[in-house]
Nucleic acid binder design. Structure first.
Lengths: 334, 334
DNA sequence: CTGAAAGCGCTTACAG
DNA sequence: CTGAAAGCGCTTACAG
């Protein structure tokens, strides 16, 4: 392994001169020696040792991407998450950072992962609202959360207008003549993206004289899509429209509908959320609320990079817009 | 930041004793001091500095996951890749390794990424056949490739029986009475998974007296699915069956078919490859060749972990089986 | 523009 | 079972 020392020996200068030349402090090294050193480094196949650099300079250039590791499945199996991660890696790498991926189970994993490699910043994917305060106290480095509804002040967060998404979904149903409607998502009892989507939906319905009754709010964490679909259709005054909190869940209902010989949208209209590739492939085409993943990743990295350069700058949050994509999964009732 | 030195001072012992106690060399430290040190470490919130450890012990516990960064899109946008990565991260982390993700553009990126952090092993996703030899020479650490058809000896590789996949696809068409068939995939001109699938397909057809003519082999890297579909259907003696090299491509044909008012399977039968969630949601259900991603990830990690423990052990390769999943995208011709 | 010294936090290897 | 010394490869801070 080639070290600064080796190059210094061959070049007949001190290690410090080599270090300075290679780190682009050109103004502090004479052009001739700088060139000689660069040539030598290239020739000898020098690769700087990041551990040593991290230790000496207290600067690792490592960004941790932190995701919850649930028992229900691999975090990256979710197309939403993997596409976001892919974009984040691509952008941060372009800026000279290294990305370490951590699937974490509890709070202590976070601090450990961050400290142990002296991470300079972190991006959080998934729900961390309960621990945000502790995470921030323990780790005084730039942190950017996504989709957080924590009421802790001074955290950077990139999210979308979930409430508006719910409003848009309600408006579609209303304008298409639906008056008996339902909702389904992984309700947790805490506030979060799902609950906000539900709120926007319920509020808008209510303002237009349509009641979303409590028993037409289904929790997909508790029952399968098939079970919910049966229950829904058998309930008195069965709903004609169902808004679900993700395209992935909509997909599960499409599959359940096929098995139960339920026709979409004739027997039941469905609206999804996200607009991922999966949803685009469904038949009939899924009407959904679109969010822009690439933009979300870009904004997340923007904020992180800015804080990396200026650690003292105030926290920033951005709420991105959502957009209605109308396809064929909502029937027009006369 | 709490260091070994801090703990040593409080415990009234030397740094070495702390180091030994914390690294589980219990037999080399008296039980009482070991316990005292553990308690102190816990209390003081000690987190070992991995950079320092890596530097001193020449052991980073970092595994690099290396993917090609193409201009055509983010590597993780592919559900196949992201699901594989997710599984690999989960497994390796459980074994105490840290995962760094590298999107690389050329050979030098690989060596740099590996050396700079002193990675102890690497997993390669995607096509690296041309550089395998160089990669191995430059980096004498355990490397596991996936889906490689390199003829370099002594490399560890986990792949699937692509040829058999092609055979199975051909057999489906033959048994359903198809005699005019086509193939579509991202042909590169080199040997690889796509070419093997094509070979298995073409050979089996030929053995049964069906010729896959050269102009019925389409390259999706050159034309869109829509263009190919038009060309295919307008060709003299138009094929009734199309085998494509991935479900993702099959999906593109489903979309193109909808736009061109082509009915699957009545106007054209389609067979895919992979059996990803996307394919399962298509209507009509996509007949496809299934590969087991979770198993692939497990085997990859198995081999890597074994070589990490015993660096001198010989290279290992595994070829996993594939399986036909019949759904409704292939029509039975009388 | 260049260098000698000290140190980042840990482990290896030796000595007792 | 415990410790003092040296060193991993780099950078910071000081001196010239």
């Amino acid at each position: 392994m080639v070290t600064l020392k080796d190059i210094a020996a061959k070049a007949g200068v001190s290690m410090m001169t080599v270090s300075r030349a290679l780190n682009g402090n050109q103004n502090k090294v004479s052009p001739e020696t700088a060139e000689k050193i660069h040539l030598l480094a290239e020739e000898m196949g020098y690769v700087p040792n990041s551990s040593a650099r991290s230790l000496a300079a207290r600067s690792s250039r490592i960004i941790a991407v932190i995701m919850r590791d649930t028992d229900e499945g691999n975090p990256l199996m979710d197309p939403y998450t993997s596409s976001f991660l892919g974009n984040v890696v691509q952008i941060l790498q372009k800026h000279g950072y290294y990305i370490m991926v951590h699937f974490i189970r509890d709070f202590s994993d976070i601090t450990f992962g961050l400290r142990s490699w002296n991470a300079q910043g972190a991006v959080f994917l998934g729900l961390f609202d309960d621990e945000i305060q502790k995470i921030r106290q323990d780790n005084r480095i730039p942190l950017v959360f996504t989709d957080s509804y924590s009421n802790v002040r001074q955290v950077s967060n990139v999210g979308i207008d979930d409430y508006k998404g719910g409003v848009l979904a309600a408006e579609v149903f209303l304008s298409h003549g639906h008056t008996r409607v339902a909702f389904c998502g992984p309700l947790s009892g805490k506030s979060g993206v799902i609950e906000e989507r539900l709120n926007g939906y319920a509020d808008t319905l209510k303002q237009n004289g349509v009641l979303l009754s409590q028993d037409q709010i289904y929790n997909i964490s508790l029952f399968s899509a098939e079970t919910i679909l049966e229950k829904l259709l058998q309930s008195p005054g069965a709903p004609t429209g169902l808004f679900v909190s993700s395209d992935h869940i909509a997909w599960q209902f499409y599959k359940a509908a096929r098995r139960l010989k339920v026709t979409i949208p004739d027997d039941l209209s469905i609206i999804g959320f996200d607009d991922i590739a999966l949803g685009q492939s469904l038949v009939p085409g899924l009407t959904t609320i679109r969010q822009d993943m690439r933009l979300k990743a870009e904004r997340t990295c923007d904020i992180l990079l800015r804080h990396l350069d200026a650690p003292k700058s105030p926290s920033e949050s951005q709420i991105l817009d959502v957009e209605l994509i109308e396809r064929e999964s909502v029937k027009t009732l006369s």
